[in-house]
Amino acid sequence: MWPWFALLVAIGVLRATNRYLIDVANGHPSLFTPKLIDELTGSLSFGVFLPALFLMLRRMPRTWLAHAGLFLALSIAQTSLMIAFRQVVFRAAGMPEFAYPPTRWRYLMEMPTQLFFYVVIVAGVWLFDRYREGRARELRAVQLESALSEARLDALRLQLNPHFLFNTLNAVSELMYERPRVADEMLSRIGELLRNTLSASSHEHSLAEEWRLVSLYMDIQRVRFGDGLDVQVETNPSLDDLRIPFLLLQPLVENAIEHGGSGDGRRVRVDASREAGRLTVRVRDDGGSGAMARPGHGIGLGNVGARLRHLYGEEAGVRLEPVVGGGSVVSVWLPARRWEAA
């Protein structure tokens, strides 16, 4: 309300000043006050109809005939109010000689100025509505993209859980007849890990929590392989509060264990580092280069890569490389951002 009032007053003052300076430039200086009253009553009387004008412009049919009718009604109403204001104000200021009665020519004289402001307002309303509609479309597009990305991430996580469960239960089935106690202990550990995975409500959590889930998974595998499994995780407490996708490392560690050797010796190394605003996690095995890309294990890298793309775009990625001397290493990189629980 007050910004509009200030704008109308400013327009009135500027127009009155312009008229006064024109008279001075022409060598016929005149009183400034009558001009100021003229312009202020003109601009403020026009401002009285602005709320109704904005309302009508959004509700009426957008045709030339409708605009002509609205402008004519606005012109007559505004000019009538303006003349009435001037009659009252000039008399109150002791200058009744500057007041004038309503005439046909007075109404016609005001129309060019009124038409100019009417066109400016119509164009402004149209541009503002287009801007608002564009922002609304952008917001809907962002919301749709976010919902789609969320759905894809959920699908990727749902893909991961059955894959992990199938592989682990398959290992249990291999042990249940020859080593039933070991199989029973594995089932107990599987239940604990599944409770943690199914209770997750976010696609990300802290690196410290990810290490805990990896530790639970390695406990399951240690029951299965016993002393034949050598897994070392080099953790850095200063990185524990960084965010990482939920259960991102489990399929990589699983593949590394499966291909980390054979027989009684399987070696896997996991470490994390931070450099130049990037968190990098490496999972290395000694089982031969390219082993993790063999058929039947591609879901690990594919799932990890898809989740990273959906969450971080080009800022994250995953790469499998052979290691000189045998084995392979998977490197995962993503933005080093702090995790803050909701």
Rank of each mutant, 00 (worst) to 15 (best):
L320R: 12
M56Y: 05
E97T: 11
R269A: 13
R222I: 12
E185I: 05
A342M: 15
M82N: 05
N170H: 14
E39T: 03
F98A: 01
W4E: 10
L144V: 13
A93H: 08
G226R: 03
D240H: 13
V89N: 05
T33F: 15
V223D: 10
L156W: 09
L301I: 14
E314I: 14
E97Y: 05
V283L: 00
R282E: 00
R224F: 01
W339Q: 06
D129Y: 00
L187H: 01
R243L: 07
P102K: 07
A151W: 08
V120R: 06
E39D: 12
A336N: 00
P101H: 01
D38C: 03
T235M: 13
P162Q: 11
R86C: 07
A25Y: 14
A16S: 00
A200D: 10
F166Q: 08
R19H: 15
T280L: 14
R179G: 04
W64T: 06
A208P: 04
N236L: 12
P322F: 15
L248E: 04
G305M: 09
R189M: 13
G326M: 02
R284G: 11
L279T: 10
E314Y: 14
V13Q: 13
N303Q: 02
T17F: 07
R181Q: 15
A276H: 11
T79H: 02
E258G: 04
T113P: 04
G263R: 02
G27I: 11
R189Q: 15
E133C: 09
V119C: 05
R58V: 03
A16N: 02
D286G: 05
A141Q: 08
H203V: 06
L169C: 12
L40S: 01
V119H: 04
R338A: 10
K35F: 06
D154T: 11
V231T: 03
L31M: 07
V182M: 07
A276T: 15
N303I: 03
P112D: 04
P101D: 08
A10L: 15
L242I: 00
L72I: 05
M60V: 03
A99M: 01
R179W: 11
E315L: 15
E204P: 01
G302I: 09
G263K: 02
G94C: 09
L216W: 13
Q143D: 12
F98H: 07
R189V: 10
R274L: 15
E275T: 12
L334P: 10
V172S: 12
M109P: 05
Q159E: 06
Y217V: 10
P162H: 14
Q250F: 13
L311W: 14
V13N: 08
V182T: 14
R195G: 03
S238H: 14
T235I: 12
A73I: 06
A68S: 03
H297G: 08
P295R: 10
Q221E: 15
A155H: 09
L252H: 08
F32Q: 02
P112W: 09
L334W: 00
G265N: 13
L229R: 00
Q143S: 15
R157Q: 01
A25Q: 08
L239C: 08
L21W: 11
H163A: 12
H259W: 14
L156T: 01
P101E: 09
F85T: 07
R59Y: 07
P295E: 00
M82Y: 11
I257F: 00
W64H: 06
I83R: 03
L74H: 06
R137F: 10
R19V: 10
P251C: 01
L55T: 03
N196C: 15
G261I: 03
A92W: 15
E192L: 11
L242F: 02
R224V: 06
E321I: 15
Y118V: 05
